[in-house]
Design a protein around this nucleic acid. Structure first.
Lengths: 231, 231
DNA sequence: TAGATTGTTAATCGATTAACAATC
DNA sequence: TAGATTGTTAATCGATTAACAATC
């Protein structure tokens, strides 16, 4: 466990690092677009909004891709991070729930500049099925299993109302999809080995409210408003 | 620093706990809707998707709101968490960038069941200004400062393209808004004391892709595709 | 060689978890 | 009293950070 093979570093990049790699990637791509060839950890870290020690530690998990005294070659680092994240292959994505949010996502072009392809849009509402959204025909939710198989979908995005989200997740899992991005405000129950990430607007707002209240001096805290003391 | 006052526990709830309180709150509200009066840490934790030791530790930061041998009274815990999160007051929210996503958010009714009120919608596009979205007239971005002042906006939501996001953030900050929720795929630069949270679809997808690739046995890893070796 | 910057070490900090005494 | 469940302790784990030797 403590032996250190020379190059193909031990698997197991820390989760916190994985979550920052996309930010570094995006920052590097912006540098690349501006024609920058080389960047130091200090400059890249500052552009990505992290501290440079953290950046270097993060990158060290991928390998030794920098040059001491010089920095990192932008193009090479873009490629290495893309590869590590699995963006050198194409991931087919299905979106279920074509309401406002589903349509917004379907129409959102730049999925991290590449790596993801929206392969199917599904909805339960007969009035929505058959409509054309973002150059795709909306299919009926009942075809989920077929669509997953035929289109090779490996990532499912859930933008249904909360009440339907669990059923959709279960069907995704049954169809062999083990990566799910959930926008519905509900905790999904899935078997081990299925990866669920959630995006939740109201949770984010509530966290902001907590800090804002803290900043505002927490006025009104401590005194319980009449009628809510309990029981 | 190590003295322990008896009740009004020391301020400073861990960030990880703050991020979970909204999940507990939502779970409790669902229990309340089903008429449940009391819940054990075991049952609540399981419904919220965390382990019960973590839940009890989290709640212990708020105070001693449970009863040994019995559990937690749902109604009381809902109130205490709401109060801690600052949801017993009303937060006015302004959304800037009324594209697909901005409209989706504006039309999204249930902002955590209450606590937040969309007070203004702003856009830079003259064709959008004046249109009615979610019972509000879309205003011009140039009125941001006035709107923030007049409507008492304290939370700013940015759903503009990446290129405009920083400018909007700077104007929000200048207008006195120090809580920002950013949907634009760009790192925002703000002064200390301003709280920025980001919601980023492509980052989430990239994290999913990383794990999916890992599960799939990482095929294709190691061999560098011709033409991308570097330089 | 002198200057710059990486990659790594080690210290510190914060989060998670099992276990259990306190107590309803 | 016996059974159940909280609140807290303490061990462990993972993440962050400063500092600096290695090295371009």
């Amino acid at each position: 466990m403590t032996s250190r093979p020379p190059r193909p570093r031990e698997r197991g990049i820390p989760e916190a690092t994985v979550a920052r790699l996309p930010v570094y990637l995006r920052t590097l791509q912006a540098l690349q677009d501006r024609g920058t060839l080389t960047v130091s950890s200090e400059d890249l870290a500052s552009a990505a909004g992290v501290n440079s020690a953290k950046l270097r530690k993060d990158l060290s998990h991928l390998g030794s891709y920098g040059t001491r005294g010089v920095g990192y070659e932008v193009r090479y680092l873009v490629y290495q991070i893309s590869r590590e994240l699995g963006l050198t292959q194409d991931w087919a994505v299905a979106i279920v729930g074509i309401g406002n949010l589903g349509r917004a996502l379907a129409n959102y072009g730049g999925f991290g500049t590449r790596g993801f392809r929206i392969a199917a849009l599904l909805d339960a509402d007969p009035a929505m099925v058959g409509r054309r959204v973002a150059s795709l025909d909306v299919g009926h939710i009942d075809t989920l299993e077929t669509v997953v198989r035929d289109k090779g979908v490996s990532i499912g995005v859930i933008t249904t109302p909360a009440a339907s989200a669990q059923a959709v997740a279960t069907r995704f899992v049954g169809a062999g999809v083990s990566s799910i991005l959930n926008f519905a405000p509900v905790v999904l129950n899935v078997p081990d080995g299925v990866d669920v990430r959630k995006v939740d607007l109201s949770i984010e707002l509530q966290i902001l409210a907590f800090h804002a209240q803290r900043r505002n001096g927490d006025e009104g805290h401590g005194a319980e408003p009449a009628g809510l003391e309990l029981t």
